[in-house]
Amino acid sequence: MRFKKYTSIAFLLLITAFVSSKVQAQPRVAGEPQILLKQDGVNFQAPVWSPDGITLAVTADRYVGIWLANADGSNLKQLTDADAGYGFSWSNDSRSILTRVNVFENRRRNHAISIFHTNGSAPDQITDFRPTMEALPKWAQYGEKVVLIQNDKIEAFDSGMEMPQQFKSKPSQAFYVLKSNEIAKGKIPTNSTENISPFDDAQYLNLEVSPDGQKLAFEVYGGNLYVMNVDGSNLVDLGKANRPDWSPDSRYVVASVSEDDGYNITKGDLFAFSIDGNEKVNLTEQSGLIAQNPNWSPDGSKIAFDVPTEGAIYVLNIQQ
């Protein structure tokens, strides 16, 4: 009996230690960053992994064009040469990319929402071209809808894609968008929004929803990087950092910490921040690279990023 009791306690301690070690493990870099994509005449930037982790989508300088490559950098091909590379986002099924395309005429730009398909089929243009489109489109309702902020109001469009079967029985999915001075939480079909901004009159940038849907990471314009719960509570200041992206377990945010001289970025390191604000790990300290625009692979094993002085996409192997 006594033996059994001690055995049970030891087992519990072992389990506790195992669980706590999993929870407390910091992301750790394994080896030097390696070049994943580089091509003469193209300055790649802003990589984004597909949700299934099989494909990496990147754009180039001025956000012109979108390219796709396998996760190991092979089979690089251009999906589009359109002015479409700023703020694009993958569909949940990794088959399509939602973006805003821009055309230039008479020194004015006109904008439309388009969905490109990785199978090479013709893109779907969701809206007509408009002279102003002051925000980026977002997926909503598990990909069935696309929403856009225009004049601080929600416009919703059919994406032309069918909602996956597993989501059909689920309640309406909330979406999160940036208005001119507001982080807004919205729902289909009412298109109503709720202001969940932590600060009055601050400007927000680069809003990212955590993979578990419970947290938001965002930048305050001219300020710091923050995370908070999707209801606006539990705000945590992570300090000066830009272009956040979530670890797949939603426990860390990777972002670039940079310096510039007003003309070019002169230093840039990637840091992993724990969402409680207690840990901050420099992932590129020894690389000597100006690292920007990190994106964490869905399996957590890699972070892709760009180096603007080289026009190359690098990848860091991560151990957690």
Binding site: Y63, Y86, G87, R100, N102, R109, H111, T132, M133, E134, A135, L136, L178, Q203, L205, N206, E219, Y221, G222, N242, R243, S256, S258, D260, G262, N264, I265, Q292
Partner: peptide, 12 residues
């Protein structure tokens, strides 16, 4: 710099 250009790009 990065925020300036992000804001500009977002506005279209």
């Amino acid at each position: 710099l990065g925020q300036r250009d992000d804001l500009a790009n977002a506005t279209g």
